[in-house]
Design a protein around this nucleic acid. Structure first.
Lengths: 209, 209, 209, 209
DNA sequence: CATGAATGAGGGTTCATTCAT
DNA sequence: AATGAATGAACCCTCATTCAT
């Protein structure tokens, strides 16, 4: 009875592969891509170094996939949150800011790794796509808002870029192993900042720190 | 004689040290901290590898000092530009944005290295100070502006952070070896973005893209 | 029933084994022994890596057997071509040269692998036998020719060795992935070279390059 | 007093480099290029692994240099032995055969490595040059001899190739760790073989084995 | 028996750091 | 005090071999 690629073996292989991806991902989440050495991934994935190479062509490839996977997930969540071109642009932009920012807040190291940590050319290519997604999305929403008169006239693309920068800087720019959690309400405040920047009248906050 | 000799010796030593710092700095400016290997620094500083260790405890220490030096220079320039608590806050904030942004534009790699490139814990400590300077300065100005009614009520510290993020993201967030120069006028547009965010009425731009 | 089953099982086992040998052989023929990794052999033989070890003790053993098999085939062909102790020695030697050379020309990589490529001690032992076959055969023929006065007096064994060397060097000594086919007529020319070396009067070639 | 590249330091560096080359060469001489791992070279050269990379770009480069050096020496010796276009071609060819063959006899493993052992593309390029030297030289001599009527008409290049093959096969074709030295007189016999092949009347040997 | 995932020794390479001169 | 050769730990990657299923 010859060996057959049964559902269970394939499932298992994918599990292992996923296990390694998870292992790598968790290492990236806690120490950035730099912490995801092949040996570390293997150890955490409870396999040998050689096994890593059964599932991935190279460390660079593995990291690129980790990036794609993590970034893809982020993108999915954000896309879902801002979906619906019939919604008011302000609504959608708020969703973009809060979703992007909220996710960065939980998983700040990962957010930092995805946005900033230098890794290798393959990952840089992925990063380009990842960053472009946010900027394109932001630009599209802002453009829609501009058309509806929600925002004051401005360069939509640059505004999108600036919005992402404001959010990410405020949330993960100060990332340190022991840096404290941003205060609750930070997200609200950033949202207001961005809306003002776009020219949307923002009602006063209740309490002034 | 012994005194003179000591003096000249010390002078010489400081020259060498400075030379190494300059060498390292120029390497960082063109290739980031990663390019500043000990060997590269020694070569460019026209001393031996071993000599580097006469002047610096370790590569980490050297890089930390390079960071301090480069960052200190940036800080000096920016501080000079925004100095004068009697000036209107809007004036000073504009100076902060334009100086910080303008300097980042020339020397984007260095700006990126100072703001984002991961190096080592010692440098991360320095970076904290560096980033804090901008945020503190921005906060102070914004606070002053708030007191004067120049800006709408908001969290001054967070606004400062967001401003820096908006500027740096728009200017160097997309930095890549071959990434194109930002369009002229980008700085103006970012300034307007930030002023709107702070609640300052901004006159329309002449041309709407 | 048990007998039949055993027979069929054994038949099957031998088929598998042969399949693996053929797979390995074809890999050697195109890329030398170095190309015959266990994984490559298994893939080409359409079995699992582990199965290879059901039929062979080790890669070294498998390669040794491949060598034996390929070399044995060469030997059979050459032996058939030179058979008949009643034939004139010149005839038989010509057959040896042309058969050995002709086969080397088609299948130069394999010929090179058999004659020259370093593999492992087990294969070196086989190679000894292989090379000895040619030398023994050549020696025997030359000795017969000497007895008949066909060749001028000389050390038969060394002459046999030299003949093989002349032929193989001229045909596959320059083997490289992109080396061109030897010109037609090369075999004729080598044959004349060898016959002259043995002291046989050789009629002039028609065309002198 | 700054460090200066004195004669002694350079001498020392060259000594070390040479020491490594000698270490590698001796490894090649006893075990072929395969035995010259970086670690083995370092150990035998009594330096650390890292030091090897102070003197050589890569293992491939080191081996290529070992090849060049060893082959170059061979070439020098042979060239010196056959020099003088005014000498009779028979003389020069005898010198070629005896020098090439004599050197192969002492240092058979090295001769084999230079002529046959696969290493890496860089070395293959060198090997091409090395082999071409012998063939070109042989061809030139034979061509001269043909012009003088010393040899019977034939393809000079192929004859040169065949001569080298005959010599190398007879001397190192049987190379094994424990293979016995060829009998004394072997060189004489090969020379006679080659001369006969070229069509030169050869006087009988005194004793027929 | 067959399978192929898993193993890990072994190989090449880099670079911060040390230390004899 | 200056030098830079030397060091070796750490990294990535390959592939023959094993063994649980």
């Amino acid at each position: 009875m010859p060996y057959r690629q049964t559902a269970s073996t394939r499932k298992n292989a994918e599990n292992k592969r996923d296990g390694l991806l998870r292992a790598a991902r968790s290492l990236v989440a806690s120490g950035g891509f730099a912490a995801a050495t092949v040996a570390a991934v293997a150890t955490r994935g409870q396999v040998s170094v050689g096994s890593v190479y059964s599932y991935f062509d190279s460390r660079d490839g593995l990291l690129a996939e980790v990036f794609r996977s993590a970034a893809g997930h982020e993108i999915d969540v954000v896309r879902a949150a801002v979906t619906g071109t019939d919604r008011p642009a302000t609504d959608r932009l708020a969703a973009l800011i809060r979703t992007f920012g909220g996710r960065a807040l939980q998983g700040r190291r990962m957010a930092w790794a995805l946005l900033f940590e230098p890794v290798n050319p393959a990952v840089e290519v992925e990063r380009l796509t990842y960053r472009r997604f946010y900027t394109d999305l932001g630009e599209e929403i802002i453009r829609a808002g501009l058309a509806d008169g929600d925002f004051v006239p401005q360069d939509a693309r640059l505004a999108a870029s600036a919005v992402m920068g404001a959010v990410s800087e405020a949330l993960i720019g100060w990332l340190r192993p022991d840096s404290p959690e941003p205060a609750p309400g930070t997200l609200d405040e950033i949202e207001r900042f961005c809306f003002r920047a776009l020219g949307v009248p923002v009602h006063d906050r209740e309490e002034t720190p």
